[in-house]
Design a protein around this nucleic acid. Structure first.
Lengths: 208, 208
DNA sequence: CGCTATAATGACTGATCCGTCAGTTTATTT
DNA sequence: AAATAAACTGACGGATCAGTCATTATAGCG
């Protein structure tokens, strides 16, 4: 076969990644053999290694893909005129992803990646960079909120961002374990926490 | 060798578990071979399988040990006369564990376990049972608080517990990745979140 | 219509690893 | 001190797996 278009290359790559995600979600990263991915994707063993030089690289690529999607959400939130609305929108968007059955596989692969990051510098870099992007988005929103008197001045933007992210990470974890949790009630509590511990009286009055 | 005392058996078991924890923390669960654990612990390959029937069982045992420690913290908090003080104590205790360099290894192994739980029912059971114990402790404290008018009646105890646990899980994750996070500021924010979104005005007045 | 560069293939390998088991050691009992 | 039973040992086997490479297939170009 001759040179193929970039689009074709991307499609092949996606084909492999999608298959790998199914396998990782089902069996876990280490219990998945390259043969499994080959079977699931329909490409040959050799082709697998034309697109990825190592199994670890596949996880890292999946993490990157995930963060591409996150970046879209972050951009949506940052585009909001009112930073407080942006913050609440972000919570809303990530909250939806938490409950969405279609994202179950992505969540399971994500949690795997969190663990693998402790072992592989490549995966760690991919994961922490993705987190950093979300964090920057939140920090930016909080700072904008402080500048306009909508967010309490004594809130450390970085800490607020980390705390919010931590919250969602934990909820992803619990959801992924198949725990039945009342996301509705958790969401209400989180919004109340933000309203009362992060926003100023002024913002609280406006967002009621 | 003849029958040995239970204490000796326990010591051997701990010797193996400690070695395994070091290995898992350093290299990750799957990259650790039983040979590694043997080398690190000083027991023979055969002895390893006298105490554990499988490698998975070692992780599960480590998780159980971890939850033993947690149970102690939970009991401490529940012993507090004032449920609000109990809640704040719990936060304080878990917060300390978050920053303690001596618990670094335990945190790393813990995060690995979170991932492995998706693959092994044994590990999942161990992890979720441990979580459930913490959750019960928090739920109990919240309910006691509500009964005495110190916790807002519109708080769903189960959701509050899950949310608080999620918070710490996320912070453990970020800490374990080696991220430099301002735990002091996060702690202040979390306390403020609890004070303002969970406690009643009455309790707020008392705990100032 | 060949020719060529590129893509795809899949059988194969060297290495690794978990768990076993036949045999050895040693404290206690008789 | 001999017998016994429990604890321990470590070499080994059967299975698996990540990654390679010699070969084949094919799309475009001249």
């Amino acid at each position: 076969m001759p040179k193929i278009s970039q689009a074709q290359k991307d499609a092949r790559r996606q084909q492999i990644l999608a298959a790998a995600a199914r396998c990782f979600s089902r069996d876990g990263f280490h219990a998945t053999t390259t043969a499994d991915i080959v079977r699931e994707s329909g490409v040959s063993q050799g082709t697998l290694y034309l697109y990825f030089t190592t199994k670890d690289e596949i996880v890292a690529a999946l993490a990157d893909d995930r963060h591409q999607g996150d970046a879209f959400l972050n951009a949506l939130a940052e585009a909001e005129h009112d930073p407080v609305q942006g913050l609440l929108l972000l919570i809303e968007l990530y909250g939806r992803g938490l409950a969405d059955p279609k994202r179950r596989e992505a969540r399971r692969v994500g949690v795997q990646g969190w663990g693998e990051a402790l072992r592989s510098p490549t995966i760690l870099a991919s994961v922490t960079q993705g987190q950093a992007a979300v964090r920057r988005a939140i920090v930016h929103l909080v700072e904008r909120g402080q500048a306009s008197g909508l967010v309490r001045a004594d809130v450390v933007p970085e800490a607020a961002a980390r705390t919010l992210i931590a919250l969602f990470q934990g909820l992803v974890l619990q959801t992924t374990w198949g725990e039945r949790l009342d996301l509705e009630a958790c969401g209400r509590l989180i919004r109340e926490m933000i309203r009362s511990a992060i926003l100023t009286d002024q913002a609280r009055a406006e967002t009621r």
